[in-house]
Simulated scan of single mutants.
Amino acid sequence: MEDIPQMGLPELHKETGIKENKNHPGFLIFKAENVSDYMISGNPFRNVMYGLNFFIEGDGEINIDFNSYKPCKNSVHFCCPGQVVTAKGSFTNGIGVIFQKDFLLKPGAQQWVQSLPIFSRFLSSPVVELQEEDKPLFHALLREMEKEYYSDAILKYDALEALLTLMLVKLSRFYEKSNEEKISVDAQHIQNLEALINKQYKNNRSVVEYAAQLYMTPQNLNRITKKAIGKSVSELINERLIIEIKRYLVYTDMSSEEIAHFFNFYDNSYFIKTFKKAVGQTPKAFRKAQKHLLRLAL
């Protein structure tokens, strides 16, 4: 079975030419000029890291799960594990900060990172535009990160952990400010639900089971999601499932029947009906249209 190629730290070190630090391999900083031709040739890859991409310029285009974004000198792009990314064109002046979820070693750090609104696809866009008054702060943080990253100073990675934590806090506050909303208790429930769906969507499509894991009734969970983002729990589960099916249709050579079976649709006609209801096209028509767009883009 052919799967979508993954891009993690080993692959990034190979593609950027930056030597891997064996003592603490969970963190990488690289500049736009280090990006290889492969990474900006339109080849798809599944991101397996958390990523912050700052101040990208150029005439390129980034596509994250079938949504395209143009580079902007005042922007920050956020990447989450599992997303499929393609990029093409030229990129300049950008700085990427990539880290594994276990890079931050304080107790509860992994859950903390997953709870941040900048990494929630249910609640936020993967791009934010910085205001002019905010840019000096992030430039200063990035300069200090680069200084530590390329140094041999004692407690180097302790400093990088502290700087990354501060960066994530500042970005989350900026996100909250730019959206003029507080991260409410309901939003925290939705982030917890998103984490569960990301882990279980392939085999678990039961609203009752998700609600039970969050210690609430299905009715209450539906009320929260409807109020916050205008969608039911079933719609959120189905959207996550459809995104992954789209990835396999476009970026693998698996047949529609194989994909249906892989995602536990044991009736292919039901798979086609479900996909067409969500997307407006049959799996075959969607694949053909997307493949045509990819050929035009290359």
Rank of each mutant, 00 (worst) to 15 (best):
E146I: 05
L171N: 06
V85Q: 04
S90I: 12
S125V: 08
P117F: 05
G82T: 13
K88N: 08
I190F: 12
V169P: 00
N93P: 07
L116S: 10
C80M: 13
C79W: 09
K106W: 07
I98M: 13
G82F: 10
K135I: 14
V127R: 12
S178M: 13
S120Y: 12
L104T: 00
N192F: 13
F91M: 05
K170P: 01
G94K: 06
D186F: 15
Y150A: 07
P81W: 11
S115M: 09
I154Y: 09
E133H: 10
G89W: 06
W112L: 01
N93D: 14
D152F: 15
E144I: 03
L193F: 10
V84K: 01
L160K: 00
S178N: 15
Q191C: 15
C80N: 13
A109T: 00
E132N: 08
N179Q: 15
R173L: 09
L164Q: 00
A153C: 11
F122Y: 15
K182M: 14
V84H: 02
I95T: 14
V85Y: 05
K177A: 12
D152W: 10
I118T: 10
H77A: 07
K88L: 09
Y175E: 14
L166Y: 04
Q110A: 10
A187S: 15
N74A: 06
G108F: 00
T86W: 05
D158C: 07
I95E: 01
Q131A: 08
Y149A: 04
K156E: 09
S124F: 14
L155E: 09
L137W: 03
M145S: 02
E176S: 14
R173M: 08
E148M: 11
H139D: 06
G94E: 03
V113S: 00
H139W: 04
L166M: 07
K177R: 12
I98Y: 08
E133A: 05
N74S: 09
V85D: 03
I183F: 13
F91E: 01
L193M: 10
V97F: 04
P136W: 02
H77D: 06
G108R: 01
V97G: 03
G94S: 10
N93V: 09
F122L: 14
L168Y: 02
D102M: 07
H77K: 07
L164R: 00
E176M: 14
F119N: 08
F91G: 02
P81Q: 11
T165L: 02
K101D: 11
A162N: 04
I98N: 05
E144Y: 03
R121Y: 13
N93W: 06
K101N: 12
K73G: 11
M167D: 03
Q131P: 03
L164P: 01
E181H: 11
K135N: 04
I98P: 02
C80E: 12
V84W: 02
K182R: 09
G89E: 06
T92K: 11
Q188C: 13
